[in-house]
Design a protein around this nucleic acid. Structure first.
Length: 383
DNA sequence: AAAGAATGTTCCC
DNA sequence: TGGGAACCCTTCTT
């Protein structure tokens, strides 16, 4: 297994790789036209937002054959030391680059395509002093990346300058970070005991802040069909769906609240936006569907990770069919939305630790990454 | 209110 | 090589 080891990374290579692709991506996708279709992996349809103001596809849409998902030995690496909390694919079809954040404040990059003669393709930094809880990569400009941390700081990495600039500093821990697809000039983040704040790039300041929950907000996510609709999950045991137009008018009244029996660790909208999947330590995966998310199913899933494993978070694949979630037996459970149950489990003798945090590649249908509390990253691919 | 226990992975002998 | 300490920003139980 390839590993990060101190002082041996070739950082210039990372810069060249990312900047090279960043320029190419903008050229390919800049007008958001359907010509970019052939840039996206086979068997997938590009989903372009109706209003087109996003300018390029948000993600590929397509169904996966679960049988074809494979974990090859060369697609495993230890990218950082220690436990990974955050994991993200670069939003481009032109490379397979993964970024992770760990509990020590490291941010690690892994270029999955790099061969060993090129160095190991792993690049390690330490921009933070505590657990890195969120990563957001700018879709138009892959060399710009935000990271947030329990130490209360948000930084913007400029890959070209190889610098992590201070963007925001708080007395409270920051637990989650997100962006609306049609407003990439703003950051939405969960701060302290239930606070949600917005940072505005144009002013360089936090523009607003509300107390939406009784305890920490673990995830913030936006509905891809209607960017005014936001979901928050909290350790206070609730999941709330909000209309940003109400919040902006200082009337933070939720549209919908769903209670779990214990802390909720994630709430993510499905690719189409018609469904919301929640994961709680009360051993349930919740599925909200219907016009106003009033149809609620609670599916049993053992979610006790203990203290040393990052909490499980069920994530969506490349359509509304399946939710992927780690299990304590070193596998990845696949929950079918139609059947409201776990239909299969991805297993592999190559997995030496429990995969707890995941990301589905936004442009490559069937490419799934999982991260462990030992710093390993696993990448499943479908042929 | 405050303290303890329990969980998996790594690392060290 | 295998056992055991250390890790330590979670959550529940005492």
């Amino acid at each position: 297994m390839r590993e990060a080891y101190e002082g041996t990374t070739s950082d210039q290579k990372l810069i060249e790789t990312i900047l090279g692709v960043s320029a190419k991506s903008q050229f390919c996708y800049g007008d958001g036209s359907m010509e970019s279709m052939d840039e996206v992996s086979c068997n997938s349809i590009v989903k372009v937002p109706e209003n087109k103001n996003f300018g390029r596809p948000i993600r590929a849409w397509g169904s996966v054959d679960l049988e074809s998902l494979k974990l090859e030995e060369e697609n495993i690496a230890r990218v950082v030391p220690g436990r990974i909390l955050a994991l993200r694919f670069f939003p481009t079809n032109d490379m397979k680059m993964i970024v992770v954040g760990n509990k020590f404040g490291n941010v690690g990059f892994w270029n999955v395509d790099s061969n060993m003669e090129d160095g190991n393709g792993i690049y390690l930094y330490r921009p933070h002093s505590g657990p890195v809880s969120g990563i957001v990569i700018q879709p138009f400009s892959l060399s710009k990346m935000f990271t947030c941390c329990y130490d209360g700081i948000i930084r913007l990495m400029d890959v070209e300058k190889e610098a992590f600039d201070l963007v925001y500093s708080s007395d409270y821990a920051i637990f989650s970070l997100s962006q609306r697809q049609n407003d990439i000039k703003s950051l939405y983040f969960g701060e302290g005991q239930g606070g949600l704040s917005i940072w505005d790039e144009r002013t360089g300041k936090s523009s607003n802040s509300w107390n939406l929950h009784e305890d920490r907000i673990n995830t913030v996510d936006f509905n891809s069909e209607n960017n005014n609709i936001m979901a928050t999950s909290s350790t206070d045991g609730s999941v709330c769906i909000w209309d940003l137009r109400n919040i902006a008018a200082n009337r933070p009244k939720f549209l919908k609240m769903v209670s779990h029996k214990r802390a909720v660790h994630s709430a993510y909208f499905s690719p189409s936006g018609s469904c919301l999947a929640t994961t709680s330590i009360d051993d349930k995966v919740g599925l909200l569907s219907g016009p106003n998310y009033e149809d609620i199913s609670m599916i049993y899933h053992y979610n006790q990770t203990g203290r040393w494993i990052s909490s499980f978070r069920g994530i969506w694949g490349w359509d509304d069919s399946y939710i992927f979630i780690g299990n304590m037996k070193r596998g990845v459970d696949v929950v079918s939305v139609a059947q409201r149950k776990n239909v299969t489990t991805l297993e592999s003798p190559h997995m030496s630790a429990i995969p707890c945090r995941f990301d589905a590649h936004p442009y490559k249908v069937g490419m799934l990454a999982g991260a462990t509390s030992g710093g390993q990253v696993y990448v499943w691919t479908s042929c």
